[in-house]
Design a protein around this nucleic acid. Structure first.
Lengths: 191, 191
DNA sequence: GTCTATAAATTGATAGAC
DNA sequence: GTCTATCAATTTATAGAC
């Protein structure tokens, strides 16, 4: 049996509202009413509206870093590893497109301190992709002239899904992730 | 000699503020002060804050559609045409990253009527890319199993630049556009 | 921990003088 | 076409009762 605390209900409500209207477009009243509480109840569990955003953003960044890090450890073959990394990273963005929008598009709304903390997670995500490409080049399996630029492009394929992906639409997350993974291999494989 | 009207000064101010803080995070007072006017002067030239957004968004969408359409007409060779399309589309997003952020991320803030009008331009952009891929497949030069999905992925490479591109940073728009164009060719060329 | 009530500031937009 | 002044509504956040 899973107990959902008031704090978690507020976080779920914040995810809904931030993803739909953006951070600035969301009122604390909207979050409260989605969570079935009065406006004042929000502040018992979260100091400010921004601290709610930070909680969501931090958890989302950590989750996506976990996903790509785990994928990076699945195979010793650089091509299959890259395929898995792009597949899992893309699938995460499709399956979590609401959190993904907050992660990717509300970064600027964080306080400078919170932004700095999250920026380190972003660098880890990029570094994980760069390392996978560099290893594949070292092993002579991948052909990548610009490793950091290509890493950004591969991540963009997954990240940009959150801009338009609609759950229940004609394309499934699995289909899109499979396509992105195949394109990633074609982009980088040595011929 | 170029005369800058008050209306244009307001649009430039709106681009700055919308790109920096988002539509909801921007106040009409902020736009007015950036344009060197009083808050009331805004409403002489634009009915609502949203009409300013619509003006910026419409112009931006038209411009990027013009860019990719012109690129689609440059060459009869599908590979070189695709390279030019991805290069020009990516370069536009790097060179116009502020307008690009408004175009890509403030779509939801438009009124339903304005959103519908702009949606037709978005479909034209996608269709232009799809046609270029389909023609290359017909001519036996490109190998693309999922044309609409691959079109979205190619556009994503350009679009996602606006999320992080910083003018004057270590990477130039030209460098990024060249890389994206090369990756696009590798993704789609028949081997 | 939840509520009602409200403070204090900010917001989009307008009125009316010049 | 620009201004000062202001309205009416909304906003984040708090006070204090239960």
């Amino acid at each position: 049996m899973t107990t959902i605390t008031a704090r978690e209900r507020l976080i779920n409500a914040a995810v809904e509202s931030f993803a739909e209207k953006g951070f600035s477009g969301t009122t604390t009243r909207d979050i409260a009413s989605r969570a079935g509480m009065s406006p004042a109840a929000v502040y018992v569990h979260h100091d400010t509206k921004e601290s709610l955003l930070f909680t969501v953003s931090l958890e989302g960044h950590r989750h996506s870093l976990d996903v790509i890090s785990a994928a990076a450890a699945t195979s010793a073959d650089p091509v299959e590893r890259l395929r898995t990394m792009v597949y899992d990273f893309s699938l995460w963005h499709a399956d979590n497109s609401r959190v993904g929008r907050i992660v990717q598009y509300e970064f600027h709304a964080l306080t400078p301190e919170h932004r700095a903390e999250i920026a380190t997670l972003r660098r880890s995500i990029e570094k994980t992709m760069q390392n996978a490409l560099a290893d594949g080049v070292d092993k002579g399996v991948l052909d990548v002239a610009d490793i950091s630029g290509t890493a950004l492009a591969l991540l963009s394929l997954g990240v940009d899904l959150v801009r338009w992906f609609v759950p229940g639409g004609s394309r499934t997350g699995h289909d899109l992730a499979t396509l992105n993974a195949e394109l990633a291999v074609r982009m980088t494989r040595r011929t």
